[in-house]
Amino acid sequence: MNYIDLHIHSNYSDDGEFEPKEIIEFCLEKGIRYFAIADHNSVKSIAETKKYCENKNINVISAVELDCNFNGVNLHVLGYGVDYNNPIFNEIEENIIFQEQEASSELPHPKEGGASWEVSNVRYIYQALWLVPNLIYV
């Protein structure tokens, strides 16, 4: 039987612990044959992961988990089969870093008359994920 895990975070995510190589070894030990490392706002692990999967009985699906805010609601949008070489993902990551830095600054909250630090990433997500060619069937 083949097992699949479509939501793993590597140490490229702020909530991930293991390097991609370690994740692959864990997956192989547990019989997982299809998996996706869907790091928050980053596709940096995908090339490394694909390279390490070569000549092993395991398949990686390129993925990303994009954090965004829409109408005041925090969302996590998962994208699978993404073109991780598309430069839009670097722009998304830089935008998220900027927002985090701006949000942690000493500026008062926008509702208190400060500068607005809430920026929607919907445009970035649309540009990044509309390129997904189709669903992946296993």
Rank of each mutant, 00 (worst) to 15 (best):
Asn2Pro: 13
Tyr3Asp: 03
Ile4Glu: 02
Leu6His: 01
His7Asp: 08
Ile8Tyr: 02
Ile8Val: 09
Ser10His: 12
Asp15Gly: 15
Asp15Glu: 06
Phe18Thr: 01
Phe18Cys: 13
Glu22Val: 07
Ile24Met: 12
Ile24Trp: 05
Glu25Leu: 15
Phe26Gly: 04
Glu29Asp: 04
Glu29Phe: 08
Glu29Cys: 06
Asp39Glu: 02
Ser42Phe: 00
Val43Lys: 00
Lys44Arg: 13
Lys44Pro: 00
Ala47Gly: 03
Ala47Pro: 00
Thr49Asn: 00
Thr49Arg: 00
Lys50Gly: 00
Lys50Tyr: 06
Lys51Ile: 03
Tyr52His: 06
Cys53Trp: 01
Asn55Leu: 05
Asn55Gln: 11
Lys56Asp: 06
Ile58Asn: 00
Ile58Thr: 01
Ile58Arg: 01
Ile61Trp: 00
Asp67Lys: 15
Asn69Trp: 08
Gly72Lys: 09
Gly72Glu: 05
Val73Ser: 07
His76Met: 15
Leu78Lys: 02
Gly79Ala: 10
Gly79Gln: 02
Tyr80Trp: 06
Val82Gly: 03
Asn85Tyr: 12
Asn86Cys: 14
Asn86Ser: 13
Pro87Arg: 14
Pro87Asp: 14
Ile88Ala: 13
Asn90Pro: 04
Ile96Ala: 07
Glu100Gly: 04
Ser104Leu: 05
Glu106Trp: 12
Ala115Gly: 12
Ala115Lys: 11
Glu118Leu: 07
Asn121Lys: 08
Asn121Thr: 03
Val122Phe: 03
Tyr124Phe: 13
Ile125Asp: 07
Tyr126Val: 08
Ala128Tyr: 10
Trp130Ser: 14
Pro133Met: 03
Val138Thr: 14
